[in-house]
Structures are given as C-alpha cells and as structure tokens.
C-alpha cells in the first residue's frame, strides 16, 4: 500500500515537509515514495497528506495509478486552457 509520485512532480518539497512517515525521497528533479514506509496515511482521517499539499495535479497517484488530484481539481482551469498552457 503506497502512493507514488509521477513525472509531473515539480520537486517543491511540500510533500516531504508534511509526510508523517518520512516516506518521500528527494532527488535533483524527481521525487519518489519509499513504498515500504508509506501507509497512505491510513491512520489519518484526512487521508494522504502529500496529496493534500501537492500543488500539481496528477503528480501523486494511488496504487491503481489514479491521480489523487485529478486534472482541473486544483487550478480550476478549464481543460482547453490547460492544453494551451502546455503547448505554449
């Protein structure tokens, strides 16, 4: 049972600051989750802390690969604008 971090991560360290299990490993530009430490914050009624503070949509996924912050859920941007931003 562990969340994981995708390539959308911007290496901002926010998850590492709040992870109660010290399960976040930080590299130069890519972060990852140390799977055996992560318990998906199952003891916390608020749920995974990394997902609560992560500023980037789709950067944190559960063990089925589902984004805990799906596209559009954080920025509130309409999807077509998001696409323009990416191709800009």
């Amino acid at each position: 049972m562990s969340v994981s971090i995708t390539k959308d991560c911007i290496a901002c360290f926010a998850c590492k600051e709040v992870c109660p299990q010290k399960a976040i490993s930080s590299g130069q530009s890519a972060f990852s989750v140390i799977a055996h430490r992560c318990n998906e914050c199952s003891d916390n009624p608020n749920g995974p802390q990394c997902a609560h503070i992560c500023p980037v949509e789709t950067a944190i996924v559960d063990n089925k690969g589902q984004a805990l912050n799906p596209l559009g859920s954080l920025t509130g941007l309409p999807q077509d604008l998001n696409v323009i931003a990416l191709s800009n």
């Binding site: 911007i10 926010a14 590492k16 503070i53 500023p55």
Partner: peptide, 14 residues
C-alpha cells in the same frame, strides 16, 4: 524554501 502551503492565482510554480 521551495514548499508552499497555499496556492495563489497569480503564481505558477511550474
């Protein structure tokens, strides 16, 4: 200090 605890609509951290 890279982490932030809020999001502002005039900021894009990417």
């Amino acid at each position: 200090a890279p982490a932030c605890n809020i999001q502002c609509n005039y900021c894009n951290r990417k």
